[in-house]
């Protein structure tokens, strides 16, 4: 699963999906995760990166990241590798 290529993300945390016309708002951590997903980092890398910068345990970050990706999936912001 990857972030769809055409998703627009602004520094203020405003996310726009041009194909559906829907817009979203993400918080700071979500924005960091989104930007890393866009650069095709693995979830492993993302968790390590967040763990370095923030006060949180690895399992918590892992679980939250999975939940976050689930939500983005529900919002149709993700696509399969070959799409």
């Amino acid at each position: 699963m990857n972030l769809k290529n055409n998703i627009a993300i602004s520094d203020s945390g405003f996310v726009f999906n041009p194909s559906s016309g829907e817009s979203f708002s993400v918080n700071q951590i979500g924005l960091e995760m989104l930007n890393m997903l866009r650069q095709k980092f693995t979830t492993e890398d993302i968790v390590t990166h967040i763990e370095k910068g923030f006060q949180a345990e690895r399992p918590t970050i892992e679980r939250d990241l999975n939940d976050f990706i689930d939500m983005m999936n529900q919002y149709h912001l993700m696509q399969d590798e070959d799409e």
């Binding site: 602004s10 203020s12 945390g13 405003f14 726009f16 817009s23 708002s25």
Partner: peptide, 11 residues
């Protein structure tokens, strides 16, 4: 423009 909507929604 979407940028206006973005401004009012985020700021």
């Amino acid at each position: 423009n979407l940028s206006e909507f973005e401004k009012i929604s985020t700021l």
